[in-house]
């Protein structure tokens, strides 16, 4: 299996002199192609920060990050942007939809930016809208749709380019259990069929049980790591709950 992402001694410090806060403390991490990794941990543990750093949106204070064989520390701005657009797909915790665009336009934005032919764009948007059940709201503006619909729109935008690495920050946070399941199933399907590599931050043990490997983060460090291996989802779910309990209660 090819290594998609490799992080070595990654650190992230916020703030200036006198008022520094270490959000990430020495993270080592390797992700192979086709993995579905979950990241869990209490609020403020540094999950979003880790995701941002790995996704080149934010720069680490120290350490190396190699994605798809490319060292991304010290890459030119334009290279980074192209890299993000072509290789990565994000589903953000706070959606990050453009309120000036309709749902449809939001979804197809990455394709338009990459100048994909119109007919191809149409095909892909249709397919994805069906997958996430948002055909009805395609011509609405983000202002007029619910949180869950926004999240599904964001997810559609993230995967429409068939990225080699999908990064999701609590993609099910605002979804009811039915749409959460359908989103998770679509992610799983992408993972199984397209061999897309997925990294997902979540608080929810049920969502995490769709992953194949889970990292538990605490105070900016990787604390525990568990693998699904041959377990069923039910068994894995149980195991996640056990770990969470052992890590110090339900305050996650």
């Amino acid at each position: 299996m090819k290594t998609i992402l490799q992080a070595k001694n990654v650190q992230k410090v916020f703030g200036a002199k006198g008022n520094v806060y270490k959000a990430l403390e020495d993270i080592d991490l390797e992700i192979k192609e086709g993995e579905f990794i979950g990241i869990m941990g209490p609020s403020g543990a540094g999950k979003s920060t880790l995701l941002n750093v790995l996704s080149t949106i934010d720069t680490p204070s120290a350490g190396d990050i190699i994605i798809n064989g490319q060292q991304i520390i010290g890459m030119k701005e334009k290279q980074l942007a192209d890299f993000r657009r072509n290789q990565l797909g994000f589903i953000f915790q706070d959606y990050n939809l453009l309120d000036t665009l309709t749902v449809k336009e939001n979804i197809l934005l990455p394709l338009a930016l990459s100048k994909v032919p119109t007919s191809e764009i149409k095909k892909r948007v249709e397919k994805i809208a069906r997958t996430f059940g948002i055909n009805e709201i395609l011509d609405k503006y983000p202002y007029h749709i619910s949180g869950g619909q926004k999240q599904r729109t964001a997810a559609s935008r993230a995967i429409i380019t068939n990225p080699s690495l999908i990064l999701a920050d609590e993609p099910t946070g605002a979804l009811d259990s039915k749409s959460a399941t359908s989103l998770l199933e679509s992610l799983s399907m992408l993972n199984e069929q397209n061999h897309s590599t997925i990294m997902m931050v979540t608080h929810d043990a049920y969502a995490a049980s769709f992953c194949k490997r889970i990292l538990f983060i605490k105070d900016g460090m990787i604390d525990v790591e568990i693998h699904k291996l041959q377990q069923t989802r039910q068994e894995f779910y149980q195991k996640i709950l056990d770990v969470l309990a052992s890590l110090g209660g339900g305050n996650i």
Partner: peptide
């Protein structure tokens, strides 16, 4: 905010 989002999804500075 909008340009920040665009930056995140891979729009470079020249664009």
């Amino acid at each position: 905010g909008r340009y920040n989002i665009l930056h995140k999804i891979g729009v470079n500075k020249r664009e």
